[in-house]
């Protein structure tokens, strides 16, 4: 098992290297020069050149990438030696004037809080609705769940988010001025909760609908298995068949989807963060792409997102092996 995890971790490392290279290449191919964006109105070629030097863009791309890797391993100096970021350094962001690693570490709790809350909410709603729908297949609970699935999956996140935001603001449940300003859950639990609850709901509704459908389908598929009939023939009650015999098997596709979704969410939820003014990774990334052309931040957020995705992919595979003894032993 450990050997397998080690192997997978190595492969994941290689994938991350490839992703970082590709991000560099894409940025390099873009027809925009970050140096001229930060140049201001009275721009001269000299100023641009100076900016390029400051940003470290005056050397060939492979040298830039080399510097990036070096920074990651031992830390590096940036902005002509004025700033030092210690390892693992993902670079230095001139527009925000911070080390990328520091910046991302600052923003991460927001994204993590958003992800965990939404995840718990949607898994609870989605799985229980899916189970009930499957149990009462064709009857009214199933039809209600189906209506929820249709609504949930067809409602765009931004629309739902905006509606909730407006509604909650009008009802004075949230204060539009302080909304999104980070408060740690241990210092102000209620403020923290207020900050996130509508964002959680926004993210959770769509996913809960998807998980309702996924759970229902998986449970129904399993219910035609021979071993379910065996359980019934033993005299096991319907609910116990569902929760013990059926769900154990039906869980596999749900877990693999959940792992990937959660991993993806840790990279930042751009739209929801934007709508609720949450200063998480998604918000940082979108600003870096659309406004400041901040390559180091872009590479950093991309890598973090990819790393989480890969890590949770691995976690899913390990979780699988605990579920299924056939995988565990071989």
């Amino acid at each position: 098992m450990l050997k397998y995890i080690g192997k997978r971790a190595m492969a994941n490392g290689l994938i991350l290297v490839a992703i970082s290279m590709i991000t560099y290449l894409i940025f390099w191919a873009l027809p925009v020069n970050p140096a001229s964006i930060s140049c201001g109105t009275h721009c001269t070629p000299q100023k641009i050149a100076a900016n390029e030097h400051l940003l470290g863009l005056d050397v060939p791309i492979w040298v830039q990438y080399g510097r990036f890797v070096k920074g990651l391993v031992v830390g590096a100096n940036y902005a002509d030696g004025q700033v030092h970021c210690s390892a693992p350094s993902l670079g230095y962001s001139v527009p925000t004037n911070t080390c990328v690693t520091t910046l991302l570490a600052q923003k991460f709790p927001v994204t993590l809080s958003l992800a965990i809350g939404a995840f718990i909410l949607w898994m609870l709603i989605g799985m229980s609705m899916g189970i009930v729908a499957a149990r009462y297949r064709g009857r009214w609970p199933d039809k209600a769940a189906n209506a929820f699935v249709l609504t949930g999956t067809s409602l765009p996140t931004f629309l739902l988010g905006l509606l909730l935001l407006i509604g909650a603001t009008l009802a004075h449940w949230i204060d539009p001025i302080t909304q999104g300003l980070w408060v740690a859950p241990w210092s102000d639990p209620i403020g923290f909760f207020k900050n996130f609850i509508f964002a959680w709901i926004t993210l959770a509704i769509t996913s809960a609908a998807i998980y309702t459908r996924l759970t229902r389908g998986s449970v129904i598929e399993t219910s035609s298995e021979d071993f379910i009939r065996t359980a019934r023939a033993k005299g096991v009650s319907e609910w116990r068949i569902l929760l013990k015999h059926n769900l154990r098997t039906s869980l596999a596709p749900i877990i693999s989807q959940a792992g990937l979704d959660f991993g993806g969410l840790l990279g930042g939820a751009v739209i929801t963060e934007k709508v609720f003014n949450l200063q998480g990774l998604g918000n940082v990334a979108i600003t870096a792409v659309l406004q400041t052309y901040d390559l180091p931040i872009l590479v950093g957020t991309t890598l973090i997102a990819a790393a989480f995705y890969l890590v949770f992919n691995l976690i899913v595979d390990v979780a699988y092996s605990f579920l299924d003894p056939r995988v565990r032993i071989s």
Binding site: R229, T230, A233, G235, T249
Partner: peptide, 19 residues
């Protein structure tokens, strides 16, 4: 069921819970 009346099925491969 399973107490007074019991049943054995055709395919022993799939009739037992694999997990």
């Amino acid at each position: 069921r399973g107490k007074n009346v019991a049943m054995i099925f055709q395919d022993p491969m799939s009739s037992l819970h694999p997990y």
